[in-house]
Simulated assay, not measured.
Amino acid sequence: MRRAALLACLLMSLPAFAGEAEIKAAQDSIAGQLHAFRADDNATAYSYAAPNVRRIFPTVDTFMSMVAGAYKPVHKPQSFSFGKFQEMNPTSIIQQVIIVGADGKDYEAVYTLELQPDGIWRITGVSLRASNSLST
């Protein structure tokens, strides 16, 4: 009896893993923003930003200026694909995205997203680093 109770407590303390629908929804938010960037649809790209990002960049113009200046590969990617996914908690995830920039170089973008009260995954941050390889 004690062993079963201990096992039940341990299982309840493990983090819940995101299901395929949650992973796809988070990836859809990232893809939606990347497609909007490519299409120069700045308002749609900005709509994927989480409230914390909107506080720092309160207008579409300030947001796009930051993206175009500091995140060129994300702003105009040739292509992208999803890599590793990690759930931090039920409302916060990390998603790796491999990006081929306009310069033909590979980049790794690590996105953080939070599930908002409206049920949409919004982007809270992006960390970008260049790879040493060239895509062919």
Rank of each mutant, 00 (worst) to 15 (best):
A49V: 03
F63V: 00
G32F: 03
I56D: 04
L134Q: 11
I120M: 14
L113W: 01
V97Y: 09
A70F: 14
L128A: 09
T91Q: 08
D61Y: 00
A102H: 03
V97W: 07
G104R: 03
K76W: 04
Y48H: 12
T44K: 09
A109E: 02
L113M: 00
S29L: 01
T62L: 06
R54C: 01
L113T: 07
I94R: 13
M88E: 15
T59S: 05
P51F: 05
A16T: 12
L14A: 13
A26V: 02
S127Q: 12
L134D: 10
A68N: 13
S81N: 06
A39H: 06
E108H: 14
P73R: 03
E87Y: 07
E22C: 09
N132M: 13
P90M: 06
D103A: 04
P58H: 09
L10V: 11
T124N: 15
T44G: 02
A21D: 14
D40M: 13
D118W: 06
R2P: 03
K105Y: 12
Q33K: 04
Q96W: 12
A16D: 09
S47Y: 05
A68W: 09
A8K: 10
S127W: 15
K105R: 12
L113A: 07
A5P: 01
C9K: 08
Q27H: 02
A25C: 05
Q27A: 00
R54S: 02
A39E: 15
E87L: 08
T136F: 15
F57Q: 04
P15M: 09
K84C: 09
D106N: 15
P73F: 02
I23T: 00
M12E: 15
P77H: 05
L6G: 00
A26G: 07
S29D: 01
D106P: 11
T136N: 15
S92W: 14
V74W: 04
A16R: 11
D28H: 13
S47I: 07
L134K: 07
L134A: 10
W121R: 00
G69W: 00
N42L: 12
H75A: 14
R2F: 03
D106G: 15
V74F: 02
P73Q: 00
V126Y: 08
H35I: 03
T91V: 10
S79Q: 06
Y107E: 05
L6N: 00
T62D: 07
A25S: 11
N132H: 13
L10Y: 07
R38G: 10
A68Y: 04
D41M: 07
E108C: 13
V53H: 07
T112D: 11
R2E: 04
V53M: 12
